[in-house]
Write a protein that binds this DNA or RNA. Structure first.
Length: 579
RNA sequence: CGGGGCGUGGCUCAGCCUGGUUAGAGCGCCUGGUUCGGGACCAGGAGGUCGGUGGUUCAAAUCCACUCGCCCCGACCA
């Protein structure tokens, strides 16, 4: 294509509203323009790139026998009410009414629609397994869209759904997806990690996320370089740092100590001149049980540790919970939040974090304002249910080996998830099994965010000059730049090379704009074309220069060989990376 | 939803505090010419209801109120 005729509105300066690298660059490079908060126009370059991503995904999904559908983004509220997600999703679900006042919504994912198709048509185990997918626009009424294309209200997702007779079948479908996802992200040229993810309250048994490390991300994952352990912070377990000071020896009894004004862990630790690791942190939370009644609970952690909400939900077997109100705390404990402890508490269930196991003679609140208790020993002075519900902290080590862990910021590009029977049960998806009995179908759901692949690649490989996309997802594979466009011989050679590249099936961009070379080099770097062929002075000697965008390394190649040279490079980059 | 910031030609921003002619700059854009290896130069030119509404005032981009939009922090995030 001839650049002079394309709409690639590059910007010299960073747009004021952009903060993260991918947002700034996609705007500057003319890939996207904003329409509203969390809504972006994908212009020519973005669309080309997204189409290439789409094709890679489609090839790999087809390769595992998945069948492509295309479902409505506009859904009747009814099926969402059936599955229960109409309420669960809350304000994140876009809701609207049609002209007759019928409630509708815009799909965030398509479990309901897929299940509604399946339950009408799948009747026998003989029809299983099935994997159905689509590449479609999703809507989420995000409370706070941000970071350019990373967190938006409308985006494109590849979502697939598997239907199997039993858990063994689901394992196969899940594994097929895991392999396909690795191939997809490898082919897109991304560096990523797969992490164990929190399965949520969906009743799912297993779930993995595909994450790309970048500061623009907002998901935290815990990684161990030595053991390969990797998990979402929401789910990760670790070995805590040892207590900063050994516990006092002996079989001591709790003793009150006056701690006037000391309420927070830091204040109490400073007042009593002990490290925070010697304290027991007492949190009071309130969940709502299935009948809608408040269910207060006590969570005990080491003083310096943080509660992991998701892990606590698993341990306590509850859903969403909130901190108790000050009045509730006073009512239940007879003291304020700064002086709470587990000793003597009998009306509320107590959960004790594993990091407190084996500890002795610690310090907790006394349930009496301005007093704390010394010599409190878990298991002796109070009891409760033990569990791991502490968030992994900086400095923690691998739970098995003690190898160092690191916490990394990432963006989620894909997620594979064993759904189980949630939708089969709520929406009545059953088939007849071998013995003629009706059994529910077990499902999996698997998602990939297309824009996030693009963003992640931009974040991953950008440099001071702009975007640097991997060949397979770059909008163009090579740009041809005759230094002086008015020079007949340069022009003729460029024309010829362009024709050759096109014939070879290379995605070539011909920069025929009548602009100074500097401007065109800058633009080409900015939009991130992986290869550039420059036709200049050396053409008279029969050579062109080929510049690799990522390394800026330059190779002189005879004009006659240039097309083949580029073709070989491009093909190599698009071949499946062998492990 | 709480806290903060911003809204002035296409882009980046100045002017606002301390109200007072025709509202500025750089970049971009248009015309002509000279250029042509890393965001060229000369000459000429177009383009702005200062987000909106209401108020204060002889007079409002500037002060006040309301409102809309966008960005950031937090809450939230299958």
């Amino acid at each position: 294509m001839h650049w002079s005729r394309l709409f690639i509105p590059t910007l010299r300066e960073d747009p004021a509203e952009a903060e993260v690298v991918s947002h700034k660059l996609l705007l500057r490079a003319g890939y996207i323009r904003q329409l509203g908060a969390g809504l972006y126009n994908y212009l020519f370059l973005a669309q080309r790139s997204l189409l290439k991503i789409t094709n890679i995904i489609r090839e790999e999904m087809d390769a595992i026998g998945a069948q492509e559908f295309y479902l409505p983004g506009l859904n009747p509220a009814e099926i969402w009410q059936e599955s229960g997600r109409y309420d669960v999703m809350g304000d994140n679900l876009f809701r609207l009414k049609d002209r007759f006042g019928r409630p509708m919504c815009l799909g965030m994912t398509h479990e309901e629609v897929m299940t509604s198709i399946a339950r009408g048509e799948l009747r026998s185990y003989k029809q299983l397994p099935q994997i159905w997918y689509q590449i479609q626009t999703k809507f989420r009424d995000e409370p706070r869209p941000k970071s350019g294309l990373l967190r938006v209200r409308q985006f494109i997702m590849k979502d697939s759904y598997s239907f199997d007779l039993g858990p063994e079948g689901l394992d196969v479908s899940y594994e097929k997806h895991r392999v396909a996802y690795c191939r997809i992200f490898d082919r897109c040229g991304l560096e990523y990690v797969t992490v164990e993810a929190h399965s949520g309250a969906m009743g799912g048994s297993q779930s993995q996320e595909f994450m790309v490390r970048t500061n623009a991300g907002e998901d935290y994952v815990v990684i161990c370089r030595q053991t390969g352990y990797a998990a979402n912070l929401e789910k990760a377990s670790s070995r805590p740092t040892p207590p900063a000071q050994p516990d006092p020896e002996g079989d001591l009894s709790p003793a009150e100590v006056h701690t006037p004004g000391a309420k927070t862990i830091e204040e109490v630790a400073a007042f009593l001149k002990v490290p925070a690791t010697s304290l027991i942190k007492t949190l009071v939370v309130v969940a709502t049980d299935s009948e809608g009644k408040d269910r207060p609970m006590v969570a005990l952690l080491r003083g310096d540790h943080q509660l992991s909400e998701t892990k606590f939900q698993s341990v306590a077997g509850c859903g969403e919970f909130r901190p108790a109100h000050p009045l509730e705390i006073r009512d239940w404990f007879g003291a304020d939040a700064g002086s709470l402890g587990p000793v003597g508490v009998s009306k509320l269930p107590i959960f004790i974090d594993e990091a407190l196991r084996g500890r002795r003679n610690m310090i907790s609140g006394a349930n009496k304002d301005d007093y704390h208790l010394l010599n409190v020993t878990p298991g002796e002075d109070f009891t409760g249910a033990w569990g791991d519900f502490r968030q992994v902290a900086e400095g923690d080590t691998d739970i098995e080996t003690g190898a160092p862990l690191e916490v990394a910021k990432t963006v989620e590009i894909g997620h594979i998830f064993k759904l189980g029977y949630k939708y089969s049960h709520s929406m009545g998806l059953n088939v007849l099994s071998h013995d003629g009995s009706e059994v529910p179908v077990i499902m999996g759901s698997y998602g990939i965010g297309l824009e996030r692949i693009l963003c992640a690649a931009v974040e991953l490989f950008a440099d001071k000059d702009g975007i640097c996309l991997p060949v397979p997802i770059a909008p163009f594979e090579v740009v041809i730049t005759p230094v002086k466009i008015s020079d007949e011989s340069l022009r003729a050679a460029a024309d010829h090379l362009y024709a050759e590249l096109r014939k070879a099936g290379v995605d070539a961009l011909y920069d025929d704009r009548d602009l100074s070379p500097g401007v065109r080099f800058k633009d080409a770097d900015l939009i991130g074309v992986p290869w550039r062929v420059v036709l200049g002075k050396k053409l008279s000697a029969g050579f062109v220069e080929i510049v690799e965008r990522r390394t800026k390394s330059t190779t002189e190649v005879p004009v006659a060989e240039a097309a083949a040279w580029i073709k070989a490079k491009v093909d190599a980059a698009k071949a499946y990376p062998s492990a």
